[in-house]
Design a protein around this nucleic acid. Structure first.
Length: 427
RNA sequence: GUGGGCGUGGCCUAGCGGUUAAGGCGCCAGGUUGUGGCCCUGGAGAUCGAGGGUUCAAAUCCCUCCGUCCACCCCA
């Protein structure tokens, strides 16, 4: 559309596909989830880090894995005016590792415990619980390979869900080996599948090339015989991976965390090693994962840093809120105003504004109703906002210099000096 | 990227070829010449997602696009 056309018929805009406005009615859910996330992370000694919304494209393209969906079709790539190739952050871990390297956090006492609440962007086809811009809590424990930390981040996510009141979910756990043992397994898996390729579904033929581990996760009927006879990853694990997994299980047992081992659980990003896990709600739904993560011992090196182990997870707020709504969870409501000012006479505006400021300076919420409405309407507004007191200011009050203070609960009114209002309305 | 459902005032919905597109919620006003939550009355607010086509006539039929929802892929 040209400028002249748009000038004739101003275009109405909607939020871009896959994005959503968080409206005031939804905000209590967001505040609840965000506050709970911050409190839980800090209780575990994790410190907040925020990184830019965009990075040099290589931060993500080099780390996620060449064949992954994220790299192949989901990253928002752009070139800025200086010619730099940049990418909107599609996931949270790689850029935090970039910051870990850049700021020399490896010289801090390890592990470095970090968390963040940040927007990610992926050019996906939107559906319930899946958006092109989504928000997640991310937690990373970097610089220590002990499986105790795997258990710790799982404990954080479990505690987070508990404090949110999310009850019906399952923790799926798996180990996917490390560079010492996984390549041999992948080779064995490919050798096994190669002659079977004509019999499996088309998706699986793609998986054979791009992500063979995911072959075992196919739900197609025709692929089940192949899956049943496939070699098992757990038979190929090296001793270090076995020990790590056993120590993780011991730690989880100590924490009374129950889980199911899902040998077919795989992660979408290439940098994961050993531990992977997902938290699934009991109710069915395609985008069911409410949080997932794992260990990524090779990631820092991929970004040019020293060999550094790490483990973490991401948990999507939109999905958490979806599940909170599904189970009709109670969340803290917006605070109610202590005072609503019903401005009946427009010329009393200065008095109304002074009164409102005075009450707010006492730390109380005060709302000025729009002048020009009938008192009846203003009282209805005060009622809808659940104000406990209404100060009525009209001609009478202008003359007397006092305001009429109405207690909404018992309908009583009295004349009160402006300087006394705050003390009376204070809950 | 693939397949399917749906797009009617701010929100929910009726109408599914034929004169001014109907109702509910919400909003505003009045009933109470300055008094809320219930009730009554009235009012404002819709080029029926956009564009094109069929027809004497389209919200209604057809096509394309856009959006949305569901599923697949994948993922938080």
């Amino acid at each position: 559309m040209t400028d002249s056309e748009s000038a004739q018929k101003p275009q109405k805009f909607a939020a871009p596909r896959g994005t959503a406005d968080v409206l005031p009615d939804d905000w209590p859910y967001w505040r609840f989830v965000r506050d709970t996330a911050e409190r839980v992370c800090e209780a575990f000694g994790y410190r907040r880090i925020d990184t830019p919304v965009f990075e040099h494209a290589g931060v993500f393209l080099r780390t996620s894995g060449a064949g992954t969906d994220i790299v192949e079709k989901e990253v928002y790539l752009f070139e800025d005016r200086g010619g730099d190739r940049l990418a909107l952050r599609p996931e949270g871990t790689a850029n935090v590792m970039r910051a870990y390297i850049e700021h020399g956090m490896s010289s801090l006492p390890q592990p470095t415990r970090l968390y963040y609440i940040a927007q990610n962007f992926r050019y996906d086809r939107p559906q319930a619980g899946r958006y092109r811009q989504h928000t997640q809590l991310g937690v990373e424990a970097v610089g220590d390979a002990d499986a105790l930390l795997d258990a710790e981040v799982i404990d954080i996510l479990r505690t987070f869900f508990m404090e949110l009141g999310l009850r019906d979910y399952t923790i799926k756990l798996n180990t996917i080996g490390d560079p010492a043992c996984r390549p041999a397994y992948i080779e064995a898996l490919r050798s096994y599948y190669r002659p079977l390729l004509p019999q499996v579904c088309e998706d699986c033929r793609g998986r054979f090339e791009k992500n063979p581990l995911r072959l075992l996760d196919c739900k197609e009927e025709r692929c089940q015989p192949a899956i049943a006879g496939a070699p098992r990853l757990h038979d190929y694990l090296c001793q270090d991976c076995r020990d790590h997994f056993q120590r993780l299980r011991d730690c989880l047992a100590a924490l009374d965390i129950s889980y199911v081992i899902d040998e077919h659980l795989v992660r979408g990003l290439d940098y994961y090693t050993r531990t992977v896990f997902e938290f699934h709600p009991a109710v069915e739904g395609a985008q069911s994962s409410m949080g997932s993560g794992g260990r990524y011992d090779g990631l820092v090196e991929l970004l040019g840093g020293p060999p550094t182990p790490g483990v973490g997870f991401g948990s999507g707020f939109e999905r958490l809120i979806l599940n909170l709504k599904r189970q009709e969870a109670a969340v803290p409501a917006d605070p109610d105003p202590a005072l609503f000012i019903a401005l009946v006479a427009a010329e009393a505006a200065p008095l109304a504004l002074r009164l409102a400021d005075r009450v707010r300076s006492e730390g109380l919420q005060a709302v000025v109703g729009s002048p020009g409405r009938s008192l009846k309407t203003l009282l209805r507004h005060a009622d809808q906002k659940r104000a406990s007191y209404v100060a009525i200011i009209g001609r009478k009050e202008l003359e007397s210099g006092e305001v009429t203070l109405r207690a909404m609960l018992d309908h009583t009114e009295r004349s009160v000096a402006v300087e006394d209002v705050a003390d009376i309305v204070r809950p």
